[in-house]
């Protein structure tokens, strides 16, 4: 039919007359990991909810797994797993029961199920917790269980809304490892995040959105090349000591945030020579990353959400 697992055209969503998604086009290929990046309130969750058929579109066309949404949403969801932004595990059940009952919602029961649940618990390293109640799990364990739950139906598409927000580095790395395994086994991943490191590590394609519109899309490396110079020198220090460092030529390659200057360049030696001997100034020389692109595109001001 076509080679995209999700095809969205001009997706729009308004709440009480105000548009929060304002014409989003998405083409998510089968296989691989697709990242939806954006600051708080960008419209990521709202976009996902439309894709899952949980939220009616205000305008636009949407096809998932070759079928129209919302017309066939219930049917399509048989082949989708969802890890929600806020865990909604069932507190009335144990870890194991959560998986069993959830599988029941997909009409899965009987022989193979017990085995599948055992595998899933092993996959997210919760085998020992099988008979523990949800309120006795840590945040990281809950998120891992949410991932296991999203996999009970062996989904072709796994949708993850900020899967690692609020987790410690150990759990984050463990989850990244598991997601990479899933990707290799052919599951398509669609994830939202505002962790640029996560997107760089996992995603093959990303879309950066803000205020309900897409600002840029492409492969992470390609986006870095397209939007910022390859190297960054971060300069920290007393503001009084800084003016001597920069000349007028530098204006277009510099961003100043608080006490820090971000200097984007192809040839860092020149600026480093200027700062390295100043007593009150510290600097950090690093390659440009996706976060620089993200901040360049979405601005540095704080979000009031």
């Amino acid at each position: 039919m076509n080679n995209f697992i999700i095809k969205a055209e001009n997706l729009k969503k308004s709440f009480n007359g105000e548009f929060v998604v304002k014409g989003v086009d998405l083409q998510v290929p089968f296989g691989g990991c697709f990242g939806l990046l954006g600051p708080n309130g960008a419209g990521k969750t709202t976009t996902l909810r439309m894709i899952l058929g949980q939220s009616p579109l205000s305008e636009g066309n949407l096809e998932v797994l070759g079928m129209d949404v919302p017309t066939h949403a219930s049917h399509i969801r048989r082949d989708i797993g969802v890890v929600p932004q806020l865990d909604n595990l069932d507190p009335d059940f144990t870890v194991m029961e959560n998986l069993k009952v959830y599988a029941g919602f997909f009409n899965l029961r009987g022989g193979g199920l017990q085995e599948r649940i055992g595998e899933l618990l092993k996959f997210v390293e919760l085998t020992e917790k099988a008979n523990v109640r949800i309120n006795q799990l840590s945040g990281g364990m809950k998120r891992r269980l949410s991932i296991a739950r999203a996999l009970v139906n062996n989904p072709r598409l796994l949708v993850l809304d900020e899967p690692t927000t609020g987790l410690d580095p150990q759990v984050r790395h463990m989850i990244w490892g598991r997601l990479r395994e899933l990707k290799q086994s052919g599951t398509t991943l669609l994830l939202t995040t505002h962790f640029m490191e996560e997107a760089e590590r996992l995603c093959d394609d990303i879309v950066i959105m803000d205020h309900g519109v897409i600002l840029s899309k492409g492969h992470p490396k390609q986006l870095i090349k397209q939007h910022v110079e390859p190297e960054v020198v971060e300069i920290h220090g007393e503001m009084d000591a800084l003016p001597g460092i920069l000349t007028e030529h530098d204006i277009h390659r510099v961003e100043i945030v608080g006490e820090t200057i971000y200097y984007f360049t192809n040839a860092p030696d020149e600026i480093i020579r200027r700062v390295e001997n100043k007593p009150d100034v510290h600097y950090l020389h690093r390659p440009a990353n996706l976060e620089d692109v993200f901040l360049r595109l979405t601005g540095r001001e704080l979000r009031e959400i």
């Binding site: 949980q54 806020l86 069932d90």
Partner: peptide, 14 residues
Amino acid sequence: PQQTYEGMLATPLE
């Protein structure tokens, strides 16, 4: 508070 229905609506249930 429990968002049980939100979880159900991510499955084929409506």
